[in-house]
Simulated scan of single mutants.
Amino acid sequence: MDAAMEYFEKQAAGPVELIGQGMEGAVYDLGGGQVGKVWFNRTPDEVLPLQEFLDELKAQDLPFRTPEISAVDEVGERAVSIEAKLVGTPLSQALESGRVSQQQGLDMFVDVVAALATTHAGSASRTLPVVEESAPFWRYRVSWGDALAGLVSRRADKSQHYLQADVEGFEELVDHVLAKLALLELRNLQIVHGDICTPNLLVDDDGRLALLDWGFYTTAGDNTFDASTAAGFYDMYGPDARAIDDQLLGRFEELGHDRGRMYLYRAAYAITTATIYSEDGSDGHYTWCVNNLNREDLRAAL
């Protein structure tokens, strides 16, 4: 990390200060409207496709701000990037402080998903890997359903030791998910963010939004996938989590998203990410995934 700091100090217009870090990397304020990112597990060759994708994303003319990568380099065997700084407060903090009301936050989520429904996925969105994988999500795949089914199958094999114990009829559930994904026939694909949650949505002083952290589950796909997952991500662990989830699912259904398909994608997401943060299923995300896979309404739909 010292080598990366030295690199950033040469690029910086002011003091280099840590802004925060997530699963994929640590982000530093460089001053002058720029930030630097140290990627934990990606090489420069793996970050360059993301840079190309973000350029493709910018051309979509979305009503919220998105990241832009101006440079990609390698320092101390780690990929580093220089990006435009997106100013604002994470929605999670704005909700906690009361600066943004619950209703306003829910409306923001619905608006972001609805805006992504207007996008058109290009070639750059098909080159990205998702979750822990290194190969592009669309590699050798001819359809969205086929690509997602392949991921579900691979990740189910990796997590089955734990999920078989905690999810009733897990193997049969996986079979149902794979069968339904195989039936999907979608001609027009949108850009899927895949991780629309309150920490990833910034709100500035003028109420403008910015959507961060593209890349974890970002690909060319079905906007209903973002509707399904965003509904569950708004409040994952609070006492009102299920009620808020159901409310958002209902709002997305009113916008034309099929309830059964949203449940299908929720199951696919839960299977593919259950052990993404802890291989032994010892974290809260694993519990959230298990609870979703055991939901009566989800199981009935599948």
Rank of each mutant, 00 (worst) to 15 (best):
V80Q: 02
I82H: 04
I82L: 13
I82V: 14
E83D: 12
A84T: 14
K85P: 12
L86N: 00
L86F: 09
L86A: 00
G88T: 06
G88H: 06
T89E: 15
P90K: 00
P90E: 00
L91E: 00
S92F: 05
Q93N: 13
Q93K: 13
A94Y: 00
L95H: 05
L95P: 07
L95D: 04
E96I: 11
S97L: 03
S101A: 09
Q102R: 11
Q103F: 05
Q104S: 08
Q104W: 00
G105S: 02
L106T: 06
L106I: 09
D107T: 10
D107G: 07
M108P: 04
F109K: 05
V112N: 02
V112P: 00
A115C: 08
A117P: 15
A117D: 15
T118Y: 09
T119Y: 03
H120Y: 07
H120K: 11
G122L: 02
S123M: 04
S123H: 08
S123F: 10
A124H: 07
S125R: 03
S125W: 01
E132S: 14
E132F: 10
E132K: 13
S134K: 15
S134G: 13
S134F: 11
A135C: 07
F137H: 04
F137D: 03
W138G: 00
Y140N: 10
R141K: 08
R141G: 06
V142G: 12
V142P: 08
V142Q: 11
S143V: 13
S143A: 11
S143T: 14
S143I: 08
G145C: 08
D146F: 02
D146V: 03
L148Y: 12
A149Q: 06
L151N: 03
L151T: 06
V152Q: 03
S153C: 08
R154K: 10
R155I: 06
R155Q: 13
R155E: 13
D157W: 08
K158Q: 14
K158E: 10
S159T: 06
S159D: 06
S159I: 01
Q160L: 10
H161L: 12
H161W: 12
H161F: 12
H161P: 05
Y162Q: 14
Y162K: 13
L163S: 06
L163C: 05
A165P: 05
D166T: 01
V167S: 02
G169Q: 05
E171T: 10
E171Y: 01
D175E: 15
H176Q: 15
V177I: 12
